[in-house]
């Protein structure tokens, strides 16, 4: 008995030694910056330098909470998050259902679905910026040829419309991800369940709402949490497509953090904002898990 224990202890020690180097590296490149950022968020720094100069406590945080620009930005970010994630879920579910019903060419469809998702976000942003261009963009060309518009439309000059168009670009990019997660989950639902329900006279809508949707709940939760957190922190597609314009109409919270930190050189402010973002995303995740995660219905 005693010998077995030492063997186990030895195994544990070897395991630790094996993971130690990678652990150190991981801690070095994630934990260290997080801690530094956290500490910096309580300090004033000299402009453009990561050197704390004066301890200011929570005042960076309070300044933002009092700042109407901050709340306007949070509002825009939440709009971006909810609209894009909601549409992605609906579209993703539709596509997943379509693939799952195995229409002719479904394998090709499933493979080609990956393409928009595989395009790097920066490239995607540039692509949509060109598509939306008022004078030589594909969107104007297409709509004009279809006769939908009579004159070229300058798409990106109205703040709200610019925001919606950035959302569209983001949806195009990430719907495949949601569709693939949901399709994988759909494929695991046993056919017998639905067949039995059909024999009992359930309509296809009833089967969808009563059988598929509850069984899909864990997959939906996963997609929802991942996408919401990602959407809340959206940065690159906005940076490329609109650069926050027009009139700050597409400035989200990550973009504001970027402006504070790198454009204005307020490292302390930027650090505080980063932590506020973390708080918001944790809040989002909590809400989802609290209201959607029900272990008893997990298959």
């Amino acid at each position: 008995m005693k010998k077995q224990e030492t063997l186990r202890q030895r195994d544990i020690r070897t395991a630790w030694m094996l993971i130690l180097p990678s652990l150190l590296i991981i801690l070095g490149i994630t934990l260290q910056p997080i801690l530094t950022t956290f500490i910096l968020s309580f300090f004033e720094t000299s402009q453009g330098q990561i050197v704390p100069t004066e301890f200011v406590g929570l005042s960076h945080y309070f300044n933002f909470i009092k700042d109407p620009i901050f709340w306007a930005t949070i509002k825009r970010t939440l709009y971006f998050t909810f609209v894009s994630v909601a549409l992605e879920l609906v579209l993703g579910l539709g596509i997943a259902q379509l693939i799952n019903s195995h229409p002719p060419g479904w394998k090709f469809l499933r493979t080609s679905l990956i393409i928009p998702w595989a395009v790097p976000t920066i490239v995607n942003g540039f692509m949509w910026r060109w598509i939306y261009n008022a004078d030589y963009g594909a969107l104007n060309g297409l709509l004009l040829q279809l006769g939908v518009i009579k004159h070229y439309v300058p798409w990106l000059i109205a703040p709200q419309r610019a925001m919606n168009l950035v959302i569209l670009a983001d949806i195009w990019h990430t719907v495949p991800f949601v569709a693939l997660i949901l399709q994988a989950a759909l494929a695991t639902i046993p056919e017998e369940l639905e067949e039995a329900a059909a024999v009992d006279g359930a309509t296809s809508w009833q089967r969808f709402v009563r059988i598929r949707l509850p069984l899909l709940r864990p997959a939906i939760l996963v997609a929802l949490v991942i996408r919401s957190v990602e959407a809340f922190r959206v940065f690159d597609i906005i940076y490329v497509t609109t650069n926050g314009g027009p009139a700050f109409g597409t400035v989200t919270i990550s973009f504001l953090t970027y402006l504070e930190t790198f454009s204005y050189g307020h490292i302390g402010n930027g650090s505080a904002l980063s932590f506020l973002i973390s708080l918001f995303t944790m809040g989002l995740a909590y809400i989802y898990i609290r209201f959607l995660y029900r272990p008893e219905v997990n298959p």
């Binding site: 300058p154 990106l156 000059i157 609109t242 027009p246």
Partner: peptide, 10 residues
């Protein structure tokens, strides 16, 4: 007045 290209804002 339509003399400036409205897309100039972007």
């Amino acid at each position: 007045d339509g003399y400036t290209n409205p897309a100039s804002i972007s």
